[in-house]
Design a protein around this nucleic acid. Structure first.
Length: 496
RNA sequence: GGCGGCAUAGCCAAGUGGUAAGGCAGGGGCCUGCAAAGCCUUUAUCCCCAGUUCGAAUCUGGGUGCCGCCUCCA
């Protein structure tokens, strides 16, 4: 059974057939760098990271390119506000982007082209469009003649005539470029320089590129005429991706991308999270601040990842307190499972664990089920269900071991389960750093002190002095020591 | 107004013709001096109506509600 994915272009799931066997050329529309990334960005890049990791796990060689838009009105406005420059603003937020993505364990792209580094390619493409009669210059601007591209609207499924009815009110008057356009639907490929704004020399005079053209130019520069998968947020379908298609395909005569994939939006109270609505939470806001709903602890980046992957990527995802809480708790379960080997391997006489763990047996049922789920348009909620089954088993056995019992599950089975969980979690980018208890910095009372207190409590309990017994338990609890009274009068303890 | 999508337990979410995965939260039980932790166990007939079918959450038609895009947007 092959991998199938939903292609926005055909509006149906299709088997993945790449141009070259086992090679995937993938381009993802990145961010405009004028602010910190919010949860909408987090979702988008987590989703595409998982797609990429899964394809790699399935044996594809993936080349992944993602751009930074570093020329833009909003960046300029931000620069003015901060008495800074466009370069400084974009540099700052590009660095912030890298920091945020690293925390979310998103693999770095193979390349990060920037608009400011792609001027040659952009100008070349505009020239070619001009030569083909698809574009025209107008007072220092250059526009794309939308009506000349007969396939216009094929991605978003709209017809120019139908759009006109609803859009006419806005397109006409409010747009300052409207007077230069031959048609309201035409869009800018190149914009004439305004005073005091960064500008580049060109045959049309000093100016800067429009937004859509950079992606067309970058894809062409890095990959050639066609790629396999083009991704981005659902809000980019129109006009951004539609325009990319118009620009690229008019010149090359070939499909810009075989498959188009779009992720659903993150919602707040049922409405899209967006800059313009002002209802956004940045990634760092969420991860850096202790949250009352989490007992004043911070939200784990991996829990954010889990939160995102618990929804199918094309559906809207509601961001709520309850969702945060659920994700955090869920993550603890997965993490317990991931740490099982490090915590209990020695106890089970496992061999020393090499840094590169062996692969789980490919024919295992869990792997099979996971693959079936993910092969069906990256069904991560179903894939996660597999992880939970594995993690629960490990967690349960870990608890039994921790509480002094003896598991009746063969050590070898637990080892395979653990390898399997780690491998599949890795495909989803979910990792828990090896936390070997003995290596952790020990704070609070020493083991001897604790044992002494337990002995004192024990005698208090035997003489029915429960007040003293409970007091000792409470004091240790306050120092992060959890006492566990086991059947048979034995009391063990763990550091929390 | 046009185009597209969604509607499954308290919340999130799989399932696309054969009598409802998983997570979170909750209930019950075991254990305990009490507790914590743990273990076991439990919780839905799938928005409404009408069809097709031996059989539908799953197909068809009609409603209702919500969301996205049509302007910068992941």
């Amino acid at each position: 059974m092959s991998l199938r994915l939903y292609n926005s272009l055909s509006r149906q799931k299709e088997p993945l057939v790449t141009a070259e066997p086992n090679i995937v050329k993938m381009y993802c529309c990145g961010v405009t760098v004028y602010d910190y990334c919010h949860l909408g960005h987090a979702r988008s890049y987590i989703v595409w990271d998982v797609v990429r990791r899964y394809l790699m796990w399935r044996g594809y060689k993936v080349r992944y390119v993602q751009n930074f838009t570093d020329i833009d009105d909003k960046i300029l406005r931000r620069a003015r506000e901060e008495h800074s420059t466009m370069e400084a603003v974009s540099e700052k937020y590009i660095q912030a982007y890298f920091e945020d993505m690293a925390r979310l364990n998103i693999l770095p792209a193979d390349e990060y082209p920037r608009a400011t580094h792609t001027l040659d390619g952009i100008k070349r493409l505009i020239h070619e469009l001009e030569q083909q009669g698809m574009a025209y210059a107008a007072a220092g601007d250059v526009y794309y003649s939308v009506r000349k591209f007969t396939d216009y609207g094929k991605l978003s499924g709209r017809k120019l005539e139908e759009m006109q009815a609803g859009a006419s009110g806005r397109v006409e008057s409010s747009d300052p470029e409207a007077s230069k356009k031959q048609d309201p639907f035409d869009f800018a490929l190149w914009k004439a320089a305004k005073p005091d704004e960064p500008a580049w020399e060109s045959d049309w005079g000093k100016g800067r590129p429009g937004w859509h053209i950079e992606c067309s130019a970058m894809v062409r520069d890095r990959f050639g005429d066609s790629i396999d998968i083009h991704t981005g947020g659902a809000d980019l379908v129109f006009p951004h991706h539609e325009n990319e298609i118009a620009q690229s395909e008019a010149v090359t005569g070939k499909p810009l991308s075989r498959y188009w994939m779009h992720n659903g939006m993150v919602n707040v109270d049922g409405e899209k999270m967006s800059k313009s609505l002002g209802n956004f939470t940045t990634i760092r806001q969420l991860l850096d601040n202790p949250l009352p709903i989490l007992n004043d602890t911070t939200f784990d980046p991996m829990a954010l990842r889990l939160f995102v992957l618990q929804a199918q990527y094309r559906k809207p995802l509601d961001f709520t307190d309850e969702a945060i809480q659920a994700a955090q708790h869920s993550w603890v379960t997965i993490r317990e499972g991931l740490l099982f080997g490090w915590n209990h391997g020695p106890q089970l006489n496992w061999p020393d664990l090499p840094p590169d763990l062996p692969k789980a047996p490919a024919e295992s049922e869990a792997i099979d089920q996971f693959r079936r789920a993910m092969d069906d348009d990256f069904n991560t909620p179903e894939g996660l269900a597999v992880l939970f089954e594995l993690a629960k088993t490990l967690k349960r056995n870990g608890n039994i071991l921790k509480h002094g019992g003896q598991t009746d599950t063969p050590s070898e089975n637990l080892y395979q389960t653990w390898l399997c969980l780690r491998e599949l979690a890795g495909v989803l980018g979910l990792v828990a750093p090896p936390e070997i208890p003995s290596v952790q910095p020990q704070t609070g009372p020493s083991a001897e002190e604790i044992e002494a207190l337990i002995t004192r409590r024990q005698s208090a309990r035997e003489s029915k002095d429960f007040a003293t017994a409970d007091q000792i338990r409470d004091e240790l609890k306050a120092q992060g020591i959890q006492l566990i009274d086991q059947p048979g009068g034995v009391t063990s303890w763990i550091r929390e």
